[in-house]
């Protein structure tokens, strides 16, 4: 199963099996839910915002190893970011799925391990669910359901 190692790197399986920041955030100021209509995966993102900064973030939901690990790694990375930094992170992650190198000054943390997902076009949407939900949250759009098939970069051939 060598080809699979690229997709399911150890760090991804670690986040899947022991998700960080999992479950509702008691004092969340913003809650956004998203689903992936193609597969039925669901994700909720809880954010505590204060003065333009994400003081805390957590996630929950049902989904595959990729979507759940992405949720764990994303919320890990979001702690303490300004909203501007969080938007830049979303753009960088979208670019990563198109094979773009992340800017050197931006720390992706464990999210970097998702680079291998772009070689599996049908699984890109699994990873993208978490940051599409985040994008909705950053737009202040809590009424609409994020749809990870929308605005998802075209996978590499």
């Amino acid at each position: 199963m060598d080809q699979l190692d690229e997709l399911y790197r150890d760090v991804i399986l670690d986040h899947f099996k022991q998700p960080r920041h999992h479950g509702p955030l008691a004092d969340a100021t913003l809650t956004v839910e998203g689903t992936n209509p193609l597969c039925g995966d669901e994700m909720t993102l809880w954010l505590r915002l204060d003065g333009g900064r994400i003081q805390a973030a957590s996630f929950g939901g049902k989904g595959c190893a990729i979507s759940q690990a992405a949720g764990s790694m994303l919320t890990e990375q979001l702690q303490g970011l300004t909203l501007t930094e969080a938007k830049a992170l979303v753009e960088t992650l979208k670019g990563l799925m198109q094979g773009q190198e992340p800017p050197a000054e931006l720390d992706l943390g464990d999210l970097e391990s998702l680079a291998g997902v772009r070689k599996f076009p049908v699984r890109v949407k699994c990873a993208a669910l978490s940051w599409n939900v985040l994008e909705q949250a950053l737009k202040g759009d809590t009424q609409h359901t994020a749809d990870s098939t929308q605005n998802t970069p075209k996978p590499l051939k």
């Binding site: 199963m1 080809q3 699979l4 399911y8 039925g40 595959c64 990729i66 599996f120």
Partner: peptide, 21 residues
Amino acid sequence: LHPHDVGTALDHEGVAIRAGH
């Protein structure tokens, strides 16, 4: 194990199944 992860792993063994709703 989520069905999508099962489906991807099976595909790499040449076995095509469906996973989803």
